[in-house]
Simulated scan of single mutants.
Amino acid sequence: MTAQGVNSAGSLSGRVAVVTGASSGIGEATAERLAEMGARVAVLARRSQRLDSLVGRVEEAGGQAMAIALDVTDAAAVQDAADRVASHFGDVDVLVNNAGVMLPAPIEERAVDQWQQQVDLNITGLMNVIGAFTPQLVKAAQERGVADLINMSSIAAQNIFPNFAVYSGTKAFVTHLSRHLRVELGPKNVRVAALEPGIVGTELQSHVTDEGTLQWLADSKEGGMEWLTPQDIADVVGFLAALPPRVNLQQVTIMPTAQPS
Rank of each mutant, 00 (worst) to 15 (best):
T2Q: 14
A3W: 10
A3Q: 02
A3L: 06
G5N: 01
A9L: 14
A9S: 12
G10C: 02
S13L: 15
G14I: 06
S23L: 13
S24C: 08
G25D: 01
A29R: 09
L34F: 03
L34H: 01
G38A: 02
V43P: 02
L44F: 12
S48Y: 05
D52N: 15
D52Q: 15
R57A: 08
R57P: 04
G62Q: 08
M66L: 06
L70M: 13
V72Q: 10
D74G: 12
A75R: 13
A75S: 14
A77T: 09
V78Y: 03
V78T: 13
A81T: 02
A82W: 05
A82Q: 00
A82D: 02
D83E: 10
R84D: 13
A86V: 03
H88K: 10
H88G: 06
G90Y: 03
V94T: 13
N97A: 15
A99W: 01
G100E: 01
M102Q: 07
M102R: 03
L103E: 09
A111Y: 04
Q118D: 08
V119H: 06
N128S: 00
N128T: 04
T134Y: 10
T134G: 06
T134H: 05
V138E: 14
A141Q: 03
A141L: 12
A141G: 10
E143D: 14
R144V: 00
R144T: 07
G145V: 04
V146S: 15
N151T: 09
N151I: 03
M152C: 11
I155M: 12
I155Q: 12
I155N: 12
A157S: 11
Q158R: 15
I160Y: 09
F161L: 11
F161Y: 15
P162L: 00
N163T: 14
N163S: 15
V166H: 10
Y167F: 07
S168M: 03
S168P: 15
F173Q: 01
V174C: 03
V174L: 07
L177W: 04
L177P: 12
H180W: 14
L181A: 04
V183W: 10
E184A: 09
L185C: 11
N189P: 07
N189H: 09
R191A: 14
V192W: 04
E196Q: 10
P197Y: 04
I199K: 03
G201F: 01
E203V: 01
S206K: 09
S206G: 08
S206F: 00
S206M: 01
V208F: 02
V208H: 05
T209I: 11
E211Q: 15
E211V: 07
E211W: 12
G212V: 07
T213I: 13
T213S: 15
L214I: 14
L214V: 07
Q215A: 13
Q215H: 13
Q215F: 04
S220C: 11
W227V: 00
L228E: 00
L228F: 02
P230T: 00
Q231L: 06
D232N: 14
D232C: 11
I233R: 03
A234V: 12
D235G: 07
V236D: 12
V236Y: 13
F239G: 14
L240M: 10
L240D: 01
L240Y: 09
A241F: 09
P244E: 04
N248M: 01
L249V: 07
L249K: 01
Q250F: 14
Q251M: 12
V252Y: 08
T253A: 15
T257K: 13
Q259C: 05
P260N: 06
